[in-house]
Design a protein around this nucleic acid. Sequence first.
DNA 1: CAGAATTAGTAGGCTTGCTTAGTATTGGCC
DNA 2: GGCCAATACTAAGCAAGCCTACTAATTCTG
Lengths: 145, 145
Amino acid sequence: MERRVGTVLAQVARLMRRAFDERAREIGVTRPQWQVLSVLLRHEGIKQGGLAELLEVEPITAGRMIDRMQEAGLVERRADPADRRAWQLYLTGRGRKIIDRLQPLAVETSRAAFEGVSEEETVQLLHTLDRILENLTGKPAASDD
Amino acid sequence: MERRVGTVLAQVARLMRRAFDERAREIGVTRPQWQVLSVLLRHEGIKQGGLAELLEVEPITAGRMIDRMQEAGLVERRADPADRRAWQLYLTGRGRKIIDRLQPLAVETSRAAFEGVSEEETVQLLHTLDRILENLTGKPAASDD
DNA sequence: CAGAATTAGTAGGCTTGCTTAGTATTGGCC
DNA sequence: GGCCAATACTAAGCAAGCCTACTAATTCTG
């Protein structure tokens, strides 16, 4: 019984990513990349380490994603004037435009996944997941991602 | 609001995998590999395609995992006498022994993640996730994986 | 100020997931 | 029986995670 939860959780997460990626394929952006774009929209100039922390991902993972997204012209690395080891991250015009196109796809994907799930159930789900997130990270719920 | 759910779901799933893998590292088995072992325990002789379907994963993904697990001596491929294209999958003695060591780690991981989450909340969570799973797969809830 | 410890990021190498494209075998249909 | 579609699996190549190990810069401490 306890085991099922982790398994189902992993499955649901994977299938949702798949559903989103399917819709976003023609735009050429993956779900994790969309998360990065979203964070940058609200945190212009954030450093890679900060991005990694918000995404709850290792710095190297964030760094490699930025490599690819820079290559694709979605984001820009600028030298941090105050710390020569660090990069500051910015959206490009192209990145900004693409977010607008991804937003409806995300809503569409969520809508399909949550068909027949009540508002109340969704809120409850989110509440439980936040609690688990706290347990796993040792931090209070981010509410930011 | 709708977006948060997908994001949090993905985060929780990833962090739970991380928590499990951390505990299981010394045994040398990953969470997805443990899922495979679990399925084989209940479905001896299943074919790769069947395994892939139970895991909700593409056949090639399952095939590559079996490659590595066979290499590691956890599972065995036997020719299907009725179909020369197919393999039948079996646990090795080593694979069987390792499941016994992994089980407590899985319980441990779940316990840590669900600290402070009531039994009722857990049941509700599972119910909602099953519903989403149905929406995403188009099939009735597996209850097996 | 010098040296040590911390911090920011990268390099290499692994697993898990995917897509697209292929081979080999099976099974249905005429 | 012969052809063709479907099925079972594999190959190549990519993204996203991870760990361990490294470099370079900053900061702390004596």
